[in-house]
Amino acid sequence: MSALVAALVAAAATVTVLMTATAVVARRVGRLAVVDVVWGAGFVLVALVAAVVTTVVDAGGGGTVAQRWLLVLLVAVWGGRLAWHIRSRAHGLLGPGETPPEDPRYAQLMEGKPFSYAVTRVFVTQGVAMFVVALPVVVGAAVAVPASSWQRWPIVLGVVVFAVGLAFEARGDAQLAAYKEIPKPERPPVLDTGLWAWTRHPNYFGDATVWWGLWLVGGLGSGWVAGLATVVAPIAMTYFLAFATGARLLEREMMQRPGYPEYAARTSMFVPRPPRRRAG
């Protein structure tokens, strides 16, 4: 079995086991939102399994060892931070022994429906999405970096793009957390300062940018063929974050809040740009 096939099989098996276990836990605690914590941590596990399996099967003869473990490091930094942030956000306002309420998105999704509905709509869907998005990391663990030094530029560029995306995501989350700590009587109706003055969803934009960086490192960094075969991953992640389960879905709720339509009129939804001037 080639290193690439072994890595793909191992990644698929890892995602299947992980999502099955997550579904069992979600059923036991009565909260589908646990899958959000597993989302970031799951990519770390997939990257680690792909690297280990590739090393065992190929003994270092296929993919480049430095590239393989660089991908594990980058995914671990991103996924670990995201999982910790989501978990901390859910537990931050709770007292001792209190259980976080269900995320409103999942509560609305499951209204009047059996748990079996969540298996396909949440766990299977996110499992498939995780496998597709992780393709550059899995392929990058198994496919050798082109020998010519000029062909390695995507790896260097990818690390830079990844760092920019991670900083954008982390800073956006930090600014939102600080905004929520302001007592409600003094809190502005809308967060429109810092990165939030340039985009209404800096954390989502940063998340998408991270995966374009990982594609450059693991996909395009392994050659043009690998790059073309895995470009679906950052495209899919960007689509999810901007138009499917991310920004666009959140906008439906936010547009009902006072001041948000005016904020939306002057601020880009996703890609950062200088804000328009306030009317009047």
Rank of each mutant, 00 (worst) to 15 (best):
M130Q: 14
L45A: 14
Y106L: 02
P234Y: 02
V34M: 10
L249I: 10
A129D: 07
R27M: 04
V46E: 04
Q175T: 01
P274Y: 08
V119I: 14
P154W: 02
A144Y: 01
G95F: 04
A167P: 09
E102F: 07
L94T: 08
L216I: 02
A174P: 08
G140I: 02
I155N: 01
W211S: 08
M269G: 09
W211A: 08
V5D: 14
A10Y: 04
V159K: 04
K180F: 00
W211N: 07
G92M: 00
P183A: 12
V122D: 02
W78Q: 08
F168I: 10
K113W: 08
V225H: 11
H201R: 08
G140N: 07
A10K: 03
I86V: 15
A279W: 08
R278D: 13
M19S: 05
L73G: 09
Q108P: 00
T199E: 05
P101C: 10
L241R: 07
G172Q: 03
Y204H: 12
A76G: 08
R252V: 14
P101F: 05
L157D: 02
L4E: 05
M254G: 03
A177V: 11
D58E: 11
V160F: 12
V46W: 02
A226S: 15
G218M: 03
T22Q: 01
V35M: 10
E181N: 15
R200H: 07
A208D: 09
D207M: 06
S2F: 07
L18W: 05
L166F: 15
A59G: 12
V225W: 15
W39V: 11
L135V: 01
G61P: 05
F240H: 09
W69Y: 14
A197R: 02
S88V: 00
W198N: 07
P183D: 13
V25F: 13
R273C: 06
V53W: 03
M130Y: 04
H91P: 00
A208Q: 03
V128T: 03
R187K: 11
Q67N: 15
A197G: 09
A142F: 04
A144F: 00
G95T: 10
V231C: 01
M1L: 13
R31V: 09
G127T: 06
L176I: 05
G60H: 06
L191E: 01
V5A: 15
P136I: 02
H201P: 02
V138S: 05
V9R: 12
V160Y: 11
R248K: 15
V15M: 02
V119M: 10
A129N: 13
E251T: 11
L214N: 10
F270G: 07
Y106I: 04
R152V: 04
A170T: 13
V119L: 15
V24C: 11
R248A: 15
H201E: 06
G30R: 10
M130S: 13
G79Q: 07
A50V: 04
W150K: 01
D103R: 05
A83C: 10
